[in-house]
């Protein structure tokens, strides 16, 4: 299948402190050499713990941030090389739904203006036509005409997330990045929103990049999953394959740490030592080695590369 999105060796370093006079300050390597593809029509899951760089990835792909190095291709366009007008056109094709249902909607705009803003920006509709479009969009996400004039604070978290989705869909995108779209919601509401994402994908033929820290959610919604650790992808495989046969010790630990909703199950749990190191002081060699239960002498010397060890299953570990 042809890829819709290609990410090539993407890097983003944030300077941590500029020296007051001059000299090099430390930097945060939020994304440190990430490459992957998203195929048209699939859902690519991106999991990792806080600080692994997954949200920075989202912002880079949408060019909300400029990269330190690397390329992103969307269709035929090279995202970082487009001019202003080309970028504006590109933005119609890729959209995002954010995590925080509170800060992601402008508190001073009524819902119809929030949802209709994309239509206005790209001059897609106006007047009565615009109103009709907004009603359609609201209905598509499970809201209705009666919600149009209300303000964000009048809605619950789940409803706000629906509004955010409608806003993204207004410009008719092919590709949607969902950055932790359900992690702020209650369990019973999470399921509603996940179902909505799946329904919309079916109806509109959307391609998703679904970012989350909850492996249960990512497993459920994704066709393929990439696992990130400290700014890099450590494993990438089909969703079922990854959960059935995790290769990287980090993925194994991550999977075993999910509490099982079955008091009977007695799984072997792998406990990781310590906390993820800060992306300012990245360990030498394999960046996971200080916490890895399977480390051996090569691991702190040499950095492993992401290799395809079986069809479609990529892992970055010296064990394979």
């Amino acid at each position: 299948m042809e890829p819709l999105l290609v990410v090539k060796n993407l890097k983003k370093y944030f300077p941590l402190k500029r020296g007051i006079w001059f000299g090099e300050g430390a930097e945060v390597r939020a994304v440190d050499g990430v490459s992957f593809e998203v195929r048209r029509g699939e859902t690519m899951g991106l999991v990792g713990e806080s600080g692994c760089g997954k949200s920075t990835m989202a912002r880079l792909i949408l060019r909300l941030l400029e990269p330190t190095a690397g390329e992103v291709y969307f269709g035929k366009a090279s995202v970082f090389e487009t001019n202003k007008e080309e970028m504006r056109q590109l933005r119609r094709r890729m959209q995002i739904v954010f995590q925080d249902p509170y800060s992601s909607l402008d508190p001073r705009m009524p819902v119809d203006e929030i949802v209709g803003e994309g239509l206005t920006i790209h001059r897609l509709a106006r007047g009565k036509e615009k109103t009709d479009r907004v009603v359609d969009l609201l209905e598509m996400v499970g809201l209705g005409r009666e919600h149009m004039g209300r303000y964000p604070h009048e809605f619950s978290g789940g409803q706000r997330q629906r509004i955010g989705i409608a806003r993204a869909l207004a410009v008719g995108p092919e590709f949607l990045i969902a950055d932790e779209p359900v992690s702020a919601l209650d369990v019973s509401i999470q399921a509603q929103i996940i179902n909505l994402f799946e329904d919309l994908q079916e109806q509109l033929g959307l391609t998703y990049l679904f970012i989350a820290h909850d492996l249960r959610v990512v497993k459920h919604i994704s066709d393929r999953v990439a696992v990130m650790y400290l700014g890099q992808i450590v494993e990438l495989a089909d969703s079922d394959e990854l959960y059935r046969n995790p290769l990287h010790p980090y993925t194994q630990a991550l999977l075993s740490a999910i509490p099982e909703v079955d008091p009977q199950s007695k799984r072997q749990r792998i406990f990781l030592e310590g906390d993820p190191p800060s992306p300012v002081q990245i360990p030498s060699g394999c960046r996971f080695h200080p916490r890895c239960p399977k480390r051996f002498d090569r691991c702190d010397q040499e950095e492993p590369v992401l290799r395809e060890v079986s069809a479609g299953h990529w892992v970055s570990c010296h064990l394979y």
Binding site: L105, R108, E117, R167
Partner: peptide, 26 residues
């Protein structure tokens, strides 16, 4: 830093709209 500003940028809004429709009213 608010996500709704980022969302507006992603929608394709220019500087004027961000400043006058989102930042200023807030």
């Amino acid at each position: 830093e608010a996500e709704h500003i980022a969302a507006t940028v992603v929608l394709g809004a220019g500087r004027g709209r961000i400043i006058f429709r989102h930042l200023l009213p807030n």
